[in-house]
């Protein structure tokens, strides 16, 4: 049997999460096919075909898949499912949306957000906001899995694999795309950024997040926030790092005015290096930080920007 990966992409660009999901799939030791479904995505398919380990790309390039809606994505994946023992997607908002729908249509349970492949049936996944790691064994004959990409590495590239066209073009039943409001930012996406500067309740208001901009420019960083900062209305929810927001693992995570609530740590504790800046020396964030600086962030941020 083979493994099917459903590629995640936006505006024709293949997301790095797809490469990392393929990295997880390689550990299953089977041939890997990748499904690229979208509109004007022939270059996306070519990019997927060049990821090491990919045997074949199935390309569905039609207007009805432009927004990768769950309803027709699920029907498409089900129509292709017979040849595959494992079907994986990255746990992005797209993957999380359609994969459980696929699972239920196939009468299978899904294993969400795996962080390790133990064997073809057994996987590790975080539960309780990452306060526990469960090892789970699927008894299903077909495994439906989403992958927490931050737990896996990028795959190397290869000479492009074969791309086959599939002419499925059914529309999403009962669901019509209305609009997409893109968060305007020149910065990298949180889940792909090598450096993240993140602010919490200690930032006091949304205006003060501007103090991050110079630092982020110099470091090529994305700007994130804790749930406390989002709940307080300082910044929009798509900046949220945590159990219920984005799960990130950059090379450098700078937590500013973040106390370190359990649910925030769940979203960033796999970062390679963590820096905490907080005036409360007892803040739990210091227990996970490689480098802590006990100081008033309003003194430190301008100093940090000047020194970089």
């Amino acid at each position: 049997m083979k493994t099917l990966i459903i590629a995640d992409h936006e505006y024709g660009v293949l997301k790095p999460e797809t490469s990392k999901t393929i990295n997880a799939a390689v550990k299953l030791g089977q041939d890997i096919d990748v499904l690229v479904a979208g509109f004007n995505v022939s270059e996306t398919a070519a990019a997927a075909a060049s990821i090491a380990g990919v045997n074949q790309v199935v390309l569905v390039d039609t207007a009805s898949f432009e927004h990768q809606q769950a309803e027709n994505m699920a029907d498409l994946v089900v129509s292709l499912s017979a040849d595959y023992s494992h079907i994986l997607a990255s746990a992005t908002t797209t993957g999380k949306n359609f994969m459980p729908r696929v699972a239920a249509l196939l009468d299978k349970n899904q294993i969400s957000e795996i962080i390790a492949v133990v064997d073809a049936d057994t996987f590790k996944r975080p539960i309780y906001a990452g306060n526990a790691i469960a090892t789970v064994k699927s008894l299903e004959d077909k495994k439906l899995i989403t992958v927490r990409a931050s737990a896996f590495d990028l795959q190397d590239t290869q000479t492009a694999a074969n791309i086959v066209n599939n002419d499925t073009s059914n529309a999403a039943t009962g669901s019509v795309f209305v609009s997409k409001e893109q968060a305007e930012s020149e910065r990298p996406e949180l889940t792909a950024a090598p450096v993240i500067v993140s602010g919490g309740r200690g930032m006091q208001n949304g205006e003060n997040f501007k103090l991050f901009e110079g630092i982020a420019d110099k470091l090529g960083a994305a700007i994130g926030a804790s749930r406390a900062a989002v709940d307080a209305g300082f910044v929009p929810n798509d900046m949220q790092v945590g159990q219920t927001g984005k799960i990130v693992a950059p090379n450098l995570y700078i937590a500013v005015g973040i106390s370190g609530a359990i649910q925030h740590l769940a979203g960033m504790k796999d970062s390679k290096v963590i820096v905490a800046i907080n005036k409360d020396p007892d803040a739990p964030i210091f227990q996970v930080a490689d480098y802590g600086l006990v100081a008033d962030l309003f003194d430190i941020l301008p100093e940090l920007e000047a020194a970089l």
């Binding site: 019509v176 795309f177 209305v178």
Partner: peptide
């Protein structure tokens, strides 16, 4: 709430 922004569906 989707990665990178907001999507509206009817």
């Amino acid at each position: 709430e989707v990665d990178g922004g907001l999507q509206t569906v009817a």
